[in-house]
Design a protein around this nucleic acid. Structure first.
Length: 804
DNA sequence: AGCACGCCGACT
DNA sequence: GTCGGCGTGCTC
C-alpha cells in the first residue's frame, strides 16, 4: 500500500502540515511528488500538493486521494524544495508558497451543490421541488437566494438532499473543434455527386476540402470559409463523411504580431569587458552574482541578449525578469525579435488563461527563455543557465503580500542550485547591491558610456517656490512652458511626468479645512472625475462628491492635489494647440490600451505624453527631446527610509527618456526642495556621490544595508486590543534578541486604520540575529488562538521595502 | 478556512 | 422543551 503526503489548500496555521492519503491501486505508479490532487478533507473536498510518497503512514484512518489533477508534476523537485525554503524565509504557509509558484489558473475554486438523494421529488418541500425538475443537482448559490438555509438543512437531515463539494479549476485549457475528413479526397469528389441536390451547403463544404486538398480545418474557419452553419457540418459528421476532434490550443497574446528578426550587434569595448566574465561563468557552470551597473542607454540589453544566446547554445534555459513588461512592449520585441518562438512571456497584462498557456510552454520545454515580471522567477525550468534581473532596484520585485519574497533572493537561491550566474542590471542599483559589489560579494560590471556616445541630457532644476513668489501659481513654470512651446514649433515631442505617489487629489473645504476621509480607513478619499465619485484606494469605499462641506455646510469645498486629468486641463489652457496623450489608470485600464497609446505617440499623433510612474521606464522615442517632471519631491516626504533612493532612481530614469537618438535632449525638474541631495545629484547623474551620501545616512539611522529589518504589523477592529498585543510582542522580542538589535515601537502604522481595522506596528533592526525566526514563530504561536478566533492579524515582513 | 460539536440563553 | 447564538477543536 502506498501513501502520499499532501499539503492541503487551507491557509491556516493548524493545517500547515502534510496530511497522509492512500494512493488508489490504479494510480500507484503514477503519483509522484509535485502533483496536484483532490482529497477529501473533513466533510469537503479540496485541492492539495503531493510532497512525498511513502509505504507507511503513522495514521490509522486514512482516506484515499479522490482525483489526480496532473499527469506530470507541476512542481519540480527543485520547486518543492524552493517552496520549503520560501516558507522558512518569509514565514508563510506551505500552501501559499506553492501557490505563489504557479499561475493563478491552477488554483482551485470551490463550489457547493445540492444533490437529490431520493427518487421521489414530491418528498421535498414545495419551494424546493421546482429546482429539481430537470436534473438532480443544483448549485447551492442558485437555491440560496430563494430558499432559507434552514429548510435545506432539514431536507439534508431527512436524507432527501446532500451537499456535494465541488473542486473546479479557475481556467481550463483552451480547446477548439477540428473538422477532419473521414474519406479520401477522391472519394469526396464522388460524394459531391452522390449527395442530394438540395444539400447545397453540404456539397459546398466537401468541395472546400477537395479544392483546397486539405485534411482538416478548425470548425470556426470552416464556417467562415465555406460560408455555412454548423448544422450542415453536423449532418456530414453524422453521415460519417467528416469527423470532429477536440484539439488543445494555446492562447497566444502575441498572435497577430510580427517580430522583426534582429541580429546581434557589435559590442563596444565596455560591453565586451562586461560580457567576458559573464560568459566564463556561463560556460564553466559557476554560480556568481554580477551587478551590471550601466547608465541608461549603455546597451545593457544587448549584453543580456548575447549572454542568453550562449546559454541557449549550451542547451540550457534562462529567466529574464523585467519590472512590468506590459509597460515596455519594446522589451518584449527585443527578446522575441532575437529568439522568436523560444520565448515565453509572463506578465500582468495577460489574462489568467494566457498566463497559464505561457507557463505550460515552459513546463513542456517548448521554450528555453522566459521574460516576465516577478513571479516568472518560479518558471519550472530544470536546466537553468542564467537568471537576469533587469532594473534590479525596482520595488515591484518584492511581493507585498504573502509570501513576502524578493525575486532577487529567489533568483540567487535557484542559481546556486543550478550553478549558474545571476545578473542584476541597473543604472541606479539599490544601495544593498552596490554595497555588496564593493565588498566583492557581487561582481561589478560597469558600463559608463552610452552606446551612441551621446552625453546625458542637460537637467535644469526649477524652484517652484520662486515661481510662486514671482506670481506664477500654475503647475507649470515659465521655463517649462517656454521649452514646451519651443518643441511644438519644431515638431519635436515632450514627455511630462507627474510623480503622483504621496498625495493625489483629496477633497478639502476651503473654509473650515475639513478633508473628506474614508469612513473605514484613516486616509483621505481620492476624487475621481468620472461620475463625481470619491474613492478609497485601500478598501474600495465610494461615495458621491458632496456639494457642501459636511462639516460647516460651506459651498467652498473642492478637490486639491494634482491628478493627470487636472494637469491635462491646465495644459490645454496654456497650450491650446498641443495634442496631448494622457496615460494613467483611467486611460490604460483596458487590455492593450497602454500599448495603443504608446504606438500613437510613437507615430507622432501627439506632441506631449503626460503620465504617472508608468511612463518612467523603457520608453524610447527618437523625437522626444524634452522631459519635464512636474513635482519631483512628492515622494520625499513619505514615511519611507527609501524615499531619497526612490526619488533619485526615478529622476535618473525619467531623464534617460530624453534625447536617446540623434536629437539632443533636455530635462526640466520642478521642485519645492531644489537643494535636496537626491534631486541635486540626480540632475548631475552622480550616482557615486548619491551612494556615499545616502550610505552615511543609512548608517546613522541604522537602516539597510547596515541593518536588516523586520516589520510586524498588528491589526484588529479594536484599538485597545491592537495596542496591547503590539506591546506584548515588543516585550517578547526584547527578551529574545541580541543587545545590538534595536526595537522600535509599538507605534501606529503610517495608515492607522484600513477597512475598519486599527493598525500598529513594531520594527526590528538587527545585524546578527540567528534566533529571530524562532522568536517570530514563537510570537505567532503565542497569538495563534486569537488569530483564528478573535479576528486578530499579525503580518510579518522580513526585509520590508517601506514602512507602510 | 470550513464545519461539527457542544453548551447556554430566549422563545413557540 | 426546542431553536439558535458562537466558543472549541479537528480535518489524514
Amino acid at each position: 500500500m502506498k501513501y502520499a503526503s499532501v499539503i492541503v489548500d487551507v491557509p491556516a496555521m493548524q493545517t500547515d502540515r502534510a496530511f497522509d492519503y492512500k494512493i488508489p491501486e490504479e494510480w500507484q505508479e503514477l503519483v509522484t511528488p509535485g502533483m496536484r490532487v483532490i482529497v477529501p478533507f473533513g466533510p469537503r473536498k479540496i485541492q492539495g500538493f503531493v510532497i512525498e510518497t511513502k509505504n507507511h503512514s503513522e495514521f490509522k484512518r486514512i482516506k484515499a486521494i479522490s482525483e489526480l489533477l496532473d499527469l506530470t508534476p507541476c512542481l519540480t523537485s527543485e520547486l518543492l524544495q524552493l517552496g520549503q525554503w520560501l516558507t522558512e524565509k518569509t514565514l508563510c504557509f506551505k500552501i501559499s508558497a506553492f501557490q505563489a509558484m504557479l499561475p493563478a489558473a491552477m488554483k482551485a475554486k470551490y463550489e457547493k451543490a445540492l444533490g437529490l438523494t431520493t427518487d421521489d421529488v414530491t418528498k421535498l418541500a414545495d419551494q424546493l421541488q421546482s429546482f429539481f425538475m430537470n436534473g438532480n443537482q443544483v448549485d447551492l448559490k442558485e437555491i440560496e437566494q430563494s430558499v432559507s438555509l434552514k429548510m435545506i438543512q432539514k431536507e439534508i437531515e431527512q436524507g432527501h438532499l446532500e451537499v456535494i463539494y465541488k473542486v473546479k479549476q479557475k481556467t481550463n485549457k483552451k480547446t477548439i473543434k477540428i473538422i477532419k475528413r473521414n474519406e479520401s479526397l477522391i472519394r469526396l469528389t464522388e460524394l459531391i455527386k452522390e449527395l442530394p441536390a438540395n444539400a447545397k451547403k453540404q456539397i459546398e463544404i466537401i468541395s472546400y476540402f477537395t479544392t483546397n486538398e486539405i485534411n482538416e480545418i478548425a470548425l470556426q474557419d470552416l464556417l467562415i470559409e465555406a460560408n455555412t452553419s454548423d448544422t450542415s457540418v453536423k449532418a456530414l459528421i453524422s453521415k460519417g463523411i467528416l469527423k470532429e476532434e477536440i484539439k488543445e490550443v494555446y492562447r497566444d497574446p502575441y498572435q497577430d504580431r510580427h517580430f522583426e528578426k534582429t541580429k546581434r550587434l557589435m559590442l563596444n569595448n565596455e560591453q565586451q569587458q562586461a560580457i567576458t566574465p559573464l560568459l566564463k561563468s556561463i560556460n564553466e557552470n559557476v554560480h556568481d552574482v554580477f551587478l551590471m551597473y550601466g547608465v541608461t542607454g549603455s546597451g545593457k540589453t544587448e549584453v543580456y541578449l548575447q549572454s542568453i544566446e550562449e546559454v541557449l547554445k549550451n542547451g540550457k534555459e534562462a529567466i529574464v525578469l523585467v519590472p512590468e513588461i506590459s509597460l515596455t512592449p519594446q522589451m518584449v520585441h527585443r527578446f522575441k525579435g532575437r529568439f522568436g518562438s523560444k520565448v515565453a512571456v509572463l506578465h500582468s497584462g495577460l489574462s489568467t488563461g494566457e498566463k497559464y498557456d505561457e507557463w505550460r510552454k515552459i513546463q513542456r520545454k517548448e521554450v528555453q527563455l522566459v521574460v516576465g515580471a516577478r513571479s516568472a522567477i518560479f518558471a519550472p525550468f530544470e536546466n537553468l543557465g542564467m537568471i537576469i534581473i533587469d532594473e534590479e532596484h525596482e520595488s515591484s520585485y518584492k511581493q507585498e503580500e504573502n509570501p513576502r519574497y524578493h525575486a532577487r533572493d529567489v533568483a540567487i537561491y535557484r542559481a546556486k542550485l543550478h550553478k549558474c550566474p545571476v545578473v542584476l542590471g541597473s543604472a541606479t542599483p539599490t544601495l544593498e547591491s552596490f554595497a555588496r559589489s564593493k565588498k566583492d560579494v557581487y561582481k561589478l560590471l560597469t558600463l559608463k558610456e552610452r552606446v551612441n556616445k551621446r552625453s546625458m541630457p542637460r537637467v535644469d532644476i526649477i524652484d517652484l517656490r520662486e515661481e510662486l513668489r514671482s506670481g506664477n501659481r500654475s503647475m507649470f513654470s515659465t521655463s517649462l512652458i517656454e521649452k514646451l512651446t519651443e518643441r511644438l514649433e519644431k515638431g519635436e515631442q515632450s514627455v511630462l511626468f507627474l510623480n503622483r505617489r504621496g498625495y493625489s487629489s483629496f477633497v478639502m473645504c476651503r473654509d473650515c479645512g475639513f478633508v473628506i476621509q474614508c469612513p473605514h480607513c484613516d486616509i483621505s478619499l481620492t476624487y475621481h472625475r468620472h461620475g463625481q465619485q470619491l474613492k478609497c484606494h485601500y478598501c474600495g469605499h465610494e461615495e458621491h462628491m458632496p456639494n457642501v462641506c459636511p462639516e460647516c455646510q460651506s459651498e467652498h469645498i473642492r478637490f486639491f492635489g494634482t491628478g493627470t486629468q487636472k494637469v491635462e486641463e491646465e495644459l490645454v489652457k496654456v497650450l491650446p494647440h498641443s495634442r496631448i496623450i494622457r496615460m494613467d489608470v483611467d486611460t490604460t485600464g483596458r487590455k492593450g490600451a497602454h500599448e495603443k497609446l504608446l504606438t500613437r505617440f510613437g507615430n507622432k499623433e501627439a506632441d506631449i505624453l503626460l503620465g504617472t510612474q508608468m511612463i518612467a521606464k523603457g520608453l524610447d522615442f527618437p523625437d522626444v527631446t524634452l522631459v519635464g517632471v512636474l513635482t519631483a519631491d512628492t515622494m520625499l516626504n513619505l514615511p519611507d527610509f527609501r524615499a531619497s533612493e526612490k526619488t533619485f532612481q526615478l529622476l535618473t530614469q525619467v531623464s534617460g527618456r530624453a534625447g536617446r537618438h540623434e536629437l539632443p535632449g533636455e530635462v526640466i525638474i520642478q521642485t519645492y526642495t531644489p537643494e535636496h541631495y537626491s534631486i541635486q545629484l540626480a540632475s548631475q547623474y552622480d550616482y557615486d556621490s548619491f551612494y556615499n551620501h545616502e550610505m552615511q545616512l543609512r548608517k546613522n539611522h541604522a537602516y539597510p544595508p547596515y541593518y536588516y529589518l523586520a516589520l510586524l504589523t498588528v491589526s484588529h477592529p479594536e484599538i485597545t486590543k491592537v495596542v496591547s498585543v503590539t506591546e506584548k510582542i515588543v516585550q517578547i522580542l526584547r527578551r529574545n534578541v541580541e543587545n545590538e538589535t534595536k526595537i522600535l515601537g509599538p507605534v501606529a502604522s503610517p495608515i492607522p486604520r484600513i477597512k475598519d481595522r486599527y493598525r500598529y506596528q513594531c520594527m526590528v533592526k538587527y545585524k546578527r540575529e540567528k534566533n529571530l525566526h524562532v522568536t517570530l514563530r514563537k510570537i505567532i504561536e503565542h497569538f495563534q488562538q486569537e488569530m483564528s478566533s478573535n479576528d486578530l492579524m499579525i503580518a510579518i515582513d522580513l526585509s520590508p521595502n517601506t514602512m507602510m
